[in-house]
Design a protein around this nucleic acid. Sequence first.
RNA 1: GGUCCGUUCGUCUAGGGGUUAGGACACGUCCCUUUCACGGAUGAAACACGGGUUCGAUUCCCGUACGGACUACCA
Length: 498
Amino acid sequence: MSQQVRVRFAPSPTGPLHIGGVRTALYNYLLARKLGGKMLLRIEDTDQNRFVQGAEEYILSSLQWLGIEIDEGVGVGGPHAPYRQSERSAIYQQYAQQLLNEGKAYYAFDTSEELDAMRQNFESQGSAFQYNALTRTRLKNSLTLSAEEVQAKLAAGEPYVIRLKVPAKEEIRFKDLIRDWVHVHSSTIDDKVLMKSDGLPTYHLANVVDDHLMEITHVIRGEEWLPSAPLHVLLYRAFGWEATMPQFAHLPLLLKPEGNGKLSKRDAELGGFPVFPLAWNAPDGTKAIGFREEGYLKETLINFLAFLGWNPGTEQEMFSMEALVTAFSLEKINKSGAKFDIQKAKWYNEQYLRLRSDESLAAEFLTAYESDKALKIVRLFKERVTFPQQITTEAQALFVAPESYDAAVVAAKWNDDAKKGIAAFKEALVSLDDFSADAIKHTLADTLTSLGIKMGKVMQALRLAVTGVGAGPDLMLMMEIIGKEGVIARLDKALQTL
RNA sequence: GGUCCGUUCGUCUAGGGGUUAGGACACGUCCCUUUCACGGAUGAAACACGGGUUCGAUUCCCGUACGGACUACCA
C-alpha cells in the first residue's frame, strides 16, 4: 500500500495570519486534496512571550472563510492530539531526554548575558560567535563540566537549556522539491537550542518531533525556513528517523510591491492595501484592515494567492478552488520571490464580482431596497465597480439629488437647445404613467423629434441635470430607478439654477 | 561578515539548445456607446553581465554582479 499524503499548516499564534501564511496553507491544502491526503493544523505556540490573545481564533476563522478545510488538528481533533504544542511539553521532554542519553545533546548553563557578551567579543574581533564544536569545549555545559557538577546544578534548579551536539564534520544534503538538492556542511551549523530554560521546546525540536509523530509526508513552508532545514535533517538523523523523513518544499517569498524584501504589514499601510485575510482588532488596540472587509471575495484571494509563485503552465487565469486542486502540482511552483501587486487582485475581484449572480449580490448588499429595485441597481453597477460595497454606495447616491453640477460639463453642454429640450421633456414626463426606461426613452425621443433637436445635443445636459455629472451608467435606467417625482424635481432644479 | 537561495516585459508568469520569446495585470491607441465604465481590437514593453560547451545558447556549465532569506533560550 502506498503511503497516504499528510501535510500540515503550522502557524504561530503571534498575531493575525499574514497573507504569506495563507498562501502556505493554501498550497498545503491543494496538495492534500490533489493527492487524496490529509491536511493538518498544528498551532506552534511554544513561545509564551509572543503569544497573542485571539490569534488562534483568527487563524481558524481565516481558513474557514477561505474554504481551506482542516482534516485533523486544532479545532477538529484527531488521532495525534493534542495539536497545540504548548500542550505537548511532556513529549518533547521525553525526546530531548533520549538525545541527552545517547550523547547527541547536552545541557548548557551559559546565561543569555554571558552569550551576549561572547557575541560582542567575537564581533569586536571581526568574527561571528557560534556555539559549535569549536567553542562548546570552552563554555559552561555538560560536556565541559563533570557529571557531579552537572547534577549539582540541576539539583539546585539552575536554569539550563538543552543543545544539539552538531557533528563537526558531516555532509548534509536533502532534496528540496522546489529547489532540488541543497548541500550544507555541518560545520556551518551551530549547536541550536532544543529545549529552552522555560522547559518548552524551540521550533526546531518541536517541529521535527511533531512532524515525525504526526506522520507528515511533505513539509511545505516558506523559504525563510530553508537555512534551518539542514539542522532539521540532522535532528531526524539523531533520532534515527531519516528513512521516514518528510520531503521538503520551500516556497518562494512574497515580496514588497516596490523595492525588495519580504512583504510586511508596513508595506500594506503604505500602499493602502491589506495583507491580512480578515480585519484584526487586538485587545491591545492594534488594528489592521483585512481583505474580506475591504470587499475582496474569497474566490479572488484564493486565485490571486495561488498565482503568486505558482502557475499551471496554461493561459487560463481564472481558477476556482476545485480547479486549483485539479491543476496543482509542486513541480510548477517557482523558485524566485513574487512581488505583491494589488492591481491584479483588484482585477480578479472585478472578474469574480461579475461572475456572481445579480440575485446573490442584491440579497447580500442591497437589503435596504425591495428586491425588484435592488436587482435593477445591481445590474446598473455590477460591471462598473471593483468591490461589492461600492454598489451600495452608488445606490445611495442615486437617491440624493445633486447639490452641484460639474462645471466643465455645464460649460460644454448646457446650451439653449438643451434647455429647451429638457423643459419640454419634463412637461412630457408629467403625463407619463409607465415610468420605465423604455417609455422614458420613447418620450424623450418623441419630444426632441417634434422640437427638431437631435438626441446627442441633449443627452449630456440631461445627465447633468439628473445626476450632476457627465458620466455614469445608462441614464434611462437611472431615471426609472429614481422615479418620476425625483426626476421631475431634479429637472426643475437644474432648469432654475443653471 | 558567514551560510543558503534566487535572477524572462514595470508586475505575475509561459517556454526552453534553432520560437516573430507566448499570456495576464497595469499603460497607450482605435472600435462599440447618450457619457463613463464594460467588452472587442491593437501597440509599446523582457531572457542581468562575462566566459565556456555546442554548428547554434535566453535555455546547459562556471564565474561576476545584483537581490533576498537566515544568522535568538522567535517562529
